[in-house]
């Protein structure tokens, strides 16, 4: 029993780190411009395909596809902002909701058309299928590295936002865009950058996931729902909140999946979310 608990604890934390990274982009975009990106899961899916096809076609080591997925995610995010979201901002709230919802469906069915409905999974890679023991606990090298690299990516973005000039400008824009403009900050570009960062981080998460998870055109649904719960739990726009909530959801997911039932685990995650929202509508860490 103890071994099973430690096993679940380790898997839960490792998976939680990935959830945090997935939620990071969603919370940054929301923080900077109060928009929920419904297509976030599709960005993840595209990151997964980008890594998958780079690995297959260029016979690359899957881990080395990270920069490619990050770059594709970045461009995808920026393009979504400048081609679509920027125009939605002038419309009513409902246009913004339906707009990114439409983007989600567009990307999902485009992927279905291009890649077909089949599940794809990588069989070659330094990490794939290898395990090691930590005491009595068996750990997948792939999950270990994916968790670790998720953490590193998350911290890197946290550092950029809090300690670089551009990051500070992004932060200022998220606090008060009009005031930021009076500092000479190009807030329009900051919005685009938020989408670019959002796309890049979730693209990296996708490229990491492909090491042990299969990709298919609708893979985004599940992860997007988890990311929404993570962001809502942690507090919309809060980066620290996304980190902690990601870990909590990772732990619930593995513990309930392992000891209770895997059907129930998502219901439990959302039940927890409802409880937090009822007690603190702004989530654990407030709006910022």
């Amino acid at each position: 029993m103890e071994v099973l608990v430690s096993q679940a604890l380790v898997s839960g934390i490792l998976m939680g780190l990935v959830f945090s990274l997935i939620a990071l982009g969603l919370t940054i975009i929301f923080g900077v411009m109060n928009i929920v990106n419904f297509a976030h899961g599709e960005f993840l899916m595209i990151g997964m395909y980008a890594a998958y096809w780079s690995a297959v076609i260029l016979s690359m080591e899957p881990l080395l596809t990270l920069p490619i997925a990050a770059a594709i995610g970045f461009v995808l995010g920026i393009a979504s902002y400048y081609l679509l979201v920027r125009h939605l901002l002038r419309g009513p709230m409902i246009a913004q909701l339906l707009g990114t919802f439409g983007l989600m469906l567009f990307l999902r069915y485009l992927a279905l058309f291009i890649f077909g409905p089949n599940f794809k999974t990588l069989s070659k890679g330094v990490l794939i299928g290898k395990t090691f023991m930590m005491g009595p606990v068996v750990i997948d090298w792939s999950k270990f590295f994916v968790g670790l690299l998720s953490l590193v990516s998350f911290l890197l973005v946290y550092w950029i936002i809090n300690y670089t000039k551009t990051g500070k400008a992004l932060l200022a824009t998220s606090i008060d865009a009009e005031a930021a403009s009076y500092m000479g900050i190009k807030t329009e570009w900051m919005n685009g950058l938020a989408w670019g960062l959002g796309g890049a981080t979730v693209g990296i998460a996708g490229a990491l996931l492909i090491n042990f998870y299969y990709v298919y055109p609708t893979v985004g649904i599940l992860f997007c729902m988890l990311a929404f719960a993570t962001v809502a739990l942690g507090g919309f726009g809060s980066i620290k909140g996304a980190f902690l909530a990601g870990l909590i959801i990772g732990l619930i997911e593995t513990f309930f999946g392992q000891f209770v039932s895997s059907e129930l685990k998502f219901a439990v995650i959302y039940a927890l979310y409802f409880i937090v929202v009822a007690l603190r509508p702004e989530g654990m860490f407030g709006w910022k």
Partner: peptide, 14 residues
């Protein structure tokens, strides 16, 4: 329009 969650010095540097 002070950036209220940020410190005085962060505000000034902005």
């Amino acid at each position: 329009r002070i950036f209220t969650p940020l410190s005085v010095e962060e505000n000034l540097r902005l």
